[in-house]
Design a protein around this nucleic acid. Structure first.
Lengths: 246, 246
DNA sequence: AGAATAGTGTCTGTTAGACATTATAGA
DNA sequence: TCTATAATGTCTAACAGACACTATTCT
């Protein structure tokens, strides 16, 4: 029979999960909805005091999705929904403590739950920004040929994240944008029924640029289901409310 | 300072790489180019005698891409080019020997090198086939909600692969198809300069269905660079030859 | 000349993009 | 009536899909 000793001969790496938690939050003087990422103030022995993406080591025989949910609950009091795998980061020098593989994930949180973080002094949402092409061209590529296209500013003023978290953020934002190109709110950043203008505001925040109102409407309408007629209550013509369907 | 002992407290899984190596080979009485996957006759202690995707355990501090190349060289005598990560398979029961994570990859080999496998009795190319929707609907989904859409028949007549290799094959084929939708031969299944009809045959093999000749031509032409005028030598009007560009 | 393959002309239905117009509410 | 927002009408340029036709070689 097969025994566990079959595996002893192979050295084993430590395995961690890191998560870019993305949502849409009001930002700037105009309170305009903006794509933002959740950062954690590190209290562990590595990179103590810096702000980074939440992450943790995988427990024995734990599913990766479970590890991600546990991490978010422990470090931010957020109950994650459906983490998506992005990439295994495998540079043997990425963690000074030793040989650590990290499975990068992206996760989204509904926009109306971004205030439910556990401890506001240890967790924060920071807007992500597209780096202009000039900056991208000037920055030198890393050894693997990756160039940075997304930037953040941490609460302590830093423009870089520890480990390879800048790379993870980059992957996460582009993954999210790709999925928001052809379907309305695939990650359910809007939880309840919504007006199309609210949906468009979310898509504009995710994609980082304005969208034509009528073209957007015709794009998404086939994938929506109307759940309520126009309900007055604000200025202007009241909007019908929809949920995603199909 | 940080010491490796920081990591001791965390249990570590064994980590393997598994690779779906895809190419285009002549198949059937018509010798029609067909998408095929490389299978290995297992001689190890698990699933001995069965046919499976090549794979192996990762060496200490080895990059995953390096592990993939090493595996292909060891088991099939193939020098891989650019493995792409697909997914980490993390079901704790996927390997009877213990807690083994597998990083699934997809790799392509130029069509004119498929005969360069090391030992033809231990390695073989088998055509992949799309399962008709009826079969897909009838097959029950696995616990994670995945349903099989791609099938193979191994040399010993089996229609299933060990471990979760059916899942990996499925992911690999769909990943390849998605990339072959918008660009001409992104994985360089054709090595040298080629005629557009050869390019179309490859795309038809990858996608699994015929393509309109003139529409395909106009799709790819902006992404090609002509390297030779028409050179006679066969029946019919001789074709210009191109390489991929832009 | 005839067969076989490569390459182009052209029509059509669809659609993204853009602008203008109508509709319905509150102030 | 005025303003603000929602929703629709319509024009245009681009393009995929399809069919027909022309071009160039070998037999």
């Amino acid at each position: 029979m097969n025994t566990p000793s079959d595996l002893i001969q192979f050295p084993r790496p430590s395995v961690a999960v890191d998560v870019a938690v993305l949502s849409v939050v009001p930002s700037g003087p105009s309170r305009q909805p903006t794509l933002a990422v959740l950062l954690i103030h590190r209290r562990t022995r590595t990179h103590t005091g810096r702000w980074s993406l939440p992450g943790s080591f995988v427990h024995e025989r734990e599913r990766l999705a479970v590890a991600v949910r546990r991490t978010l609950l422990d470090k931010a009091g957020i109950d994650g929904l459906s983490p998506r795998q992005l990439l295994v980061l495998d540079d043997p020098r990425r963690d000074a403590r030793g040989w650590v593989l990290s499975v990068a994930h992206v996760e989204t949180v509904p926009a109306d739950r971004t205030h439910q973080v556990a401890d506001p002094s240890l967790t924060t949402w920071v807007p992500v920004q597209d780096l202009p092409p000039t900056d991208i061209a000037e920055s030198d590529a890393d050894p693997e040929g990756w160039v940075r296209t997304i930037g953040v500013v941490t609460p302590d003023g830093s423009t870089t994240l520890p480990f390879d978290h800048d790379r993870i953020l980059d992957l996460a934002v582009h993954d999210l944008r790709r999925r928001y190109l052809d379907r309305p709110d695939p990650d359910h950043l809007l939880s309840g029924p919504f007006a199309i203008s609210e949906l468009r505001a979310v898509h504009e925040a995710v994609l980082g640029h304005p969208l034509q109102k009528d073209t957007f409407r015709r794009m998404v309408l086939p994938h929506l289901r109307q759940v309520a007629g126009p309900t007055p209550g604000s200025v202007g013509r009241p909007a019908a409310r929809y949920i995603t369907a199909s």
